[in-house]
């Protein structure tokens, strides 16, 4: 099953490689991993998307907790409703009647065109992974120049914070 795991870590050099190294050493799967500082600049927050059986996910959270620099691990998928968002920039071909068509598609998906040339658009959009995938499919591979995605971010709904 797919799990979104939030990790708060000391914002130290090498923190990311400790997590990445753990996943490769123990042959766990990483679907996406994002990392950035938080409002407290001594902490970094990672959001990690992985897949595995309940046993594997239990080991993953235990092994993450075991890392000395890790302050908090929360398996969001196990803790009630969550908000999941991913950000994407996508550069697409936009010539001839494709220009209007792509613009309409962007509107439907509530995406924004943020760069325009006479033959291309750069479109930004946010949403969960399914929505971004659906947009990519709708545009069609043959019309895509390049794609960059942030990887999923996750946060629990409600008033309670992670710490």
């Amino acid at each position: 099953m797919r799990h979104i795991i939030s990790i708060l870590m000391e914002n130290e050099a090498g923190a990311l490689s400790r997590v990445a190294g753990l996943f490769s050493a123990r042959a766990y799967n990483i679907e996406s991993l994002t990392v950035a500082p938080t409002e407290d600049d001594s902490l970094s927050r990672m959001t990690l998307v992985t897949r595995g059986s309940d046993e594997i996910i239990e080991q993953i959270t235990k092994q993450l907790n075991k890392l000395i620099d890790v302050v908090k691990v929360l398996d969001l998928s196990d803790n009630g409703p969550i908000i999941e968002r991913e950000y994407m920039l996508i550069k697409v071909k936009a010539e001839g009647n494709l220009r209007e068509e792509t613009k309409r598609l962007a509107d439907i998906f509530r995406a924004n065109i943020i760069d325009v040339t006479d033959c291309s658009y750069v479109i930004e959009m946010a949403g969960n992974a399914d929505k971004l995938n659906a947009f990519i499919d709708s545009v069609g591979n043959e019309h895509i120049v390049e794609v960059v995605r942030s990887g999923a971010l996750g946060m629990a709904r409600g008033a309670k914070g992670i710490l």
Partner: peptide, 16 residues
């Protein structure tokens, strides 16, 4: 050294 030993230590430090 920190990179090479990372998977086989409880923890490691590079003193900065």
């Amino acid at each position: 050294t920190v990179g090479i030993t990372r998977p086989c230590v409880k923890h490691n430090f590079l003193v900065e």
